[in-house]
Design a protein around this nucleic acid. Structure first.
Lengths: 215, 215
DNA sequence: TTATGAGTAGGTAATAATACCTAGTTTTAA
DNA sequence: TTAAAACTAGGTATTATTACCTACTCATAA
């Protein structure tokens, strides 16, 4: 008998997946959580063999919950369930050390297959997740190439403050008053920023920092 | 026997809800669609009594699908299913004339209750949806007040062109060259814009048009 | 301890933007 | 067809920004 803890904030989805899992004779959902906090607590209390965690949940999301669960023995197998194929989510999950990641677009066969595979000690990622991982890998190669050509720029704390005020439409004098420095100092910072980012006026500066999301 | 068409792009969710519905003796899911296009086609083909449509789907979203389905007789009852309690979604759904809106955070009881209520010809919105509708109503009253104080501004085509170039960091001279007009004309447009939008420099101008999304 | 980077501030000039005008032509809507 | 709005462009002045400099202080890392 495989004891499963299921966490998902949407009741309909949770109960659906539960019915789904229990169509397998040897699966039993012994607990249900509607947020990450509950999941952590129920895991400690019920000590399930497997925890299925939805990623986007209130209180504590699936990733945070997984991180905590993995710190206390006995460690259950953990499979993340997600609505999204966002590479950020997938990458973060990889880093936390969960045992599987299944997209909600997967079908029953894949879900059951994934659960069984994870229980044998292997990792499992559903088909669509694997596809994202592959395309990510390819992108990361391209990105690496790009990073070589474009030397990285570092913006200091003070410059950051200045940029933020420039973005609010403040003039040098206003910024100077705000920061209790000379407007000439502000001009110097502004000029340094423009040089660093290779732009020729404040609007381009704003566009650039936004583009490189340094804000 | 109530014939139901179910549309949701996530297999696990779809099959879950299906099992869920069919736990009622007189409910029968006669078709499943994994996007809006399929939903429209299957509706025409199967002529179900009720269509459950997830809002966010590829190809054609739930709202677009609902709009089409409502144009061809026989018109089934339609209930939107949504992950989100976004007021925009809810409002748009209201406008399309669907018969119900159920949040996926609802439970089995509410789903079944909603289906039965809709089938009697009434509308149904799940508890959390009703809450959003109430708070929206209150907000709309506040908004109305705000709109009275802030008279609406209209930006002309030419001004729009100018703003877009300003946003790219172009100077008046560059803009003038781009549009084959005098830089003084550009200055006039810029000044008119700043006056209209009650700002005192180009950066604030950009922030304002972005905020009021006039771009 | 010294070199480096960050933060500060000023000089001088040129260029750009803003403020407040007038006023013509063209387009659009009443 | 006439009035209003949009687009055009200029005058004049003030203020702000940008370009290139130098140079001091302070903290921190080599």
């Amino acid at each position: 008998m495989l004891k499963i803890l299921l966490a998902d904030d949407h009741h309909l989805v949770r109960d659906g997946i539960k019915m789904f899992l229990e169509s397998e004779a040897d699966f039993k959902v012994i607990g249900e959580a509607k947020n990450g906090l509950e999941a952590v607590e129920l895991n400690a209390e019920l000590k399930p063999h497997l925890v299925l965690l939805d990623i986007s949940m209130p209180e504590k999301n699936g990733i945070e919950a997984a991180t905590e669960i993995l710190q206390h023995k006995p460690i259950p197998k953990i499979i993340m369930l997600s609505m999204y194929l966002d590479e950020k989510y997938i990458n973060t999950c990889m880093e936390t050390g969960v045992h599987g990641y299944i997209h909600k677009g997967a079908d029953k066969k894949e879900l059951i297959e994934g659960v069984r595979k994870v229980m044998t000690g292997q990792n499992f990622y559903s088909k669509e997740v694997r596809e994202v991982m592959v395309s990510n890998y390819i992108n990361s190669l391209k990105q690496k190439k790009k990073n070589l050509t474009q030397q990285k720029v570092t913006i200091t704390k003070r410059e950051m403050e200045i940029v933020k005020l420039i973005m609010k439409g403040y003039s040098s004098v206003q910024i100077a008053e705000d920061l209790f420095i000379s407007n000439r100092t502000v001009d110097t910072h502004r000029a340094n920023l423009m040089q660093k980012l290779d732009v020729k006026n404040s609007i381009e500066l704003i566009n650039k920092v936004t583009e490189l999301n340094l804000v």
